[in-house]
């Protein structure tokens, strides 16, 4: 199993945000985590990335494993660099004062000198041709959709094989959203494992193979996408009837 989360409890300060969640993601899967605002979706992703408190949650109990090995003691930069897991954070968090190209270059900071960076750059530019057109532009001048593409391109440049996406469709026009999901589908067909956090549950479940439903820090339902899409309880609470 690529990722296993076992009975994870996580706190922000003294407030418990996750009350023992367990989930797993297999190699090559697309798994989605759905739930309302404040359910603990971002908290889960930040815990997996081992982002440091106080901005990120502190793991209190439970375990997170990548390919069977606990990563609790591994710092974020090594989760990215050595375990090849990347997070595309909520709100994109691109470096607005850097150009598009500099953002992409920075993500190769820790990579091997002899890696084929040109090929990876080609891949990103093929997936998102708009980025190629705007490579010299200061990235805070990009549109929201382009910024999201840059955030994904940046993750790809870090040489990841497992990508965590936090609300990638937030604030995007429907057409751009389709473009983005198409790109993610392509990535998955080339072997990328994806864990997707979305508020738009219907879109997410149609895209993913499996899903988990989070509610106030606990997993309340899980199963294949078809199963969840047809679950009366999930339908009522998350799919608008």
């Amino acid at each position: 199993m690529l990722l296993t989360v076992e009975d994870l409890h996580a706190n922000y300060g003294t407030i418990e945000a996750l009350h023992g969640i367990s989930l797993h993601v297999a190699e090559g899967e697309i798994v989605t985590l759905i739930g309302a605002n404040g359910a603990g979706k971002t908290t889960t992703l930040h815990s997996i990335m081992r982002l440091p408190p106080p901005e990120a949650p502190k793991t209190i109990k439970g375990d997170i494993k990548i390919q069977g090995e606990s990563i609790l003691a591994i710092p974020t930069h090594d989760v990215v660099r050595k375990l090849h897991v990347a997070l595309v954070p909520e709100g994109r968090r691109i470096f607005g004062n850097l150009s598009v190209m500099e953002n992409l270059t920075l993500a190769t900071y820790a990579r091997n000198r002899n890696d084929d960076l040109e090929q990876d750059l080609d891949q990103v530019f093929t997936l998102f041709p708009r980025l190629a057109e705007r490579r010299k532009q200061r990235s805070e001048l990009l549109s929201g959709g382009e910024q999201q593409m840059l955030a994904m391109g940046r993750a790809l440049m870090s040489n990841c094989r497992f990508i965590l996406l936090d609300e990638p469709s937030m604030g995007l026009a429907p057409l751009l959203m389709q473009e983005l999901f198409k790109a993610m589908r392509q990535l998955n067909e080339h072997g990328m494992t994806i864990l997707l956090v979305e508020q738009n549950a219907r879109v997410a479940l149609r895209f993913a193979h499996r899903g988990y439903v989070l509610d106030t820090g606990s997993i309340v339902a899980e199963g294949t996408s078809d199963l969840l899409l047809n679950d009366p309880e999930v339908k009522r609470a998350y799919l608008g009837g």
Partner: peptide, 21 residues
């Protein structure tokens, strides 16, 4: 690259370790 990272960290410190730095 280290200069880029210095500029980047002043913009958003949170995202720096996510770049493997």
């Amino acid at each position: 690259k280290i200069g880029m990272a210095m500029r980047a960290i002043s913009y958003d410190r949170f995202a720096i370790p996510l770049m493997g730095i």
